[in-house]
């Protein structure tokens, strides 16, 4: 292990070290603390410019209740889940399949295909606005959650395929040769060899992709207009539009919007590190 572990019996040393780490952590999270404190403030503090001190008056309940009563935030929340979850599942399935093929089958143009996935993922997404919008109109999906789901799956598949390909490429070849020698079909190899081994990678990928899609705002503006399909980030912006200076309400909404990715992260933390360890790291 590096750096050298501090000996378990050096109690004072350990406590001191932990103190130092926590001090750095507090500085690191100062901006976040500002959002949390602001989400508890009464409007008066905001008007007088007290953004960093302890609130002089608390409006915690008002602010958080306000988020849900002033906008259809609950509806947006549900929409976000209905967009994000299928998208993440779709990305995981497509990228596992594509990553498996690109890493373990030799065929002409495989590198070019991989290059296209990587390259497409590097594009600034804004430039695809008009063509993607027109495509969704032609498909009759404009202003539906499907438009967002399809776009997110397609766009994130670039990054995810890159990730999964590297991960599967790092799995020992002997496993695959042994399976082939036993007469296993590609589908059987996929199900019995690849899937059990890529689980940690899928967990890590799921968190990243969930975060990316959950936090998307741009495409929500481009592809949806109805409140009945808009995700939570667009709701956050509506709040910004209606109560421009109500930073306390906006902060509360920001915290609420951040909750699902944070929860997801804490739940899957162990897998996340494990997945990255084997995937991204040993590419």
């Amino acid at each position: 292990m590096y750096p050298r572990p501090i000996a378990p019996n050096a109690k004072a040393h350990r406590a001191l070290y932990m103190g130092l780490v926590i001090a750095i952590l507090l500085a690191w999270l100062a901006p976040l603390c500002a959002i949390i404190l602001t989400s508890m403030r009464a409007p008066k503090d905001i008007a007088t410019g007290n953004l960093w001190g302890w609130p002089t008056e608390f409006g915690l309940v008002d602010n958080y209740v306000g988020v849900f009563t002033q906008t259809p935030m609950a509806r947006f929340f549900l929409n976000s889940l209905m967009i994000t979850i299928p998208s993440v599942l779709g990305v995981l399935i497509l990228s596992t399949l594509a990553g498996f093929v690109l890493s373990k089958f030799k065929f002409r143009g495989s590198m070019l295909l991989f290059a296209v996935f990587v390259g497409g993922n590097f594009l600034p997404a804004q430039i695809m606005m008009i063509p993607v919008r027109d495509l969704m109109v032609r498909l009759g999906l404009y202003d539906t959650t499907y438009a967002l789901i399809i776009f997110h799956i397609a766009f994130q598949t670039g990054f995810a395929t890159l990730f999964m390909r590297n991960f599967i490429a790092a799995l020992p070849n002997e496993l695959f040769e042994a399976a082939r020698a036993e007469g296993a079909s590609p589908a059987q190899i996929l199900i019995h060899v690849v899937l059990p081994l890529v689980r940690p990678a899928l967990a890590a990928l799921a968190i990243l992709v969930f975060t990316f899609i959950w936090n998307d705002y741009f495409w929500a503006v481009v592809l949806t207009i109805s409140d009945s399909v808009k995700p939570v980030t667009a709701g956050l912006a509506n709040l910004r539009g209606q109560y421009v200076s109500a930073w306390n309400t906006i902060s509360a909404a920001t915290i609420i919007v951040a909750v699902p990715p944070v929860v997801m992260f804490f739940l899957m933390q162990r897998h996340f590190i494990a997945g990255l360890t084997m995937g991204a790291v040993k590419g």
């Binding site: 906008t71 919008r133 503006v221 481009v222 592809l223 409140d227 667009a234 912006a237 509506n238 539009g241």
Partner: peptide, 16 residues
């Protein structure tokens, strides 16, 4: 059906 939109985002949205 009434859909509310953020003032700034609406400038992008209306073109679409």
């Amino acid at each position: 059906t009434l859909n509310l939109m953020d003032h700034e985002a609406h400038k992008t949205a209306i073109r679409n």
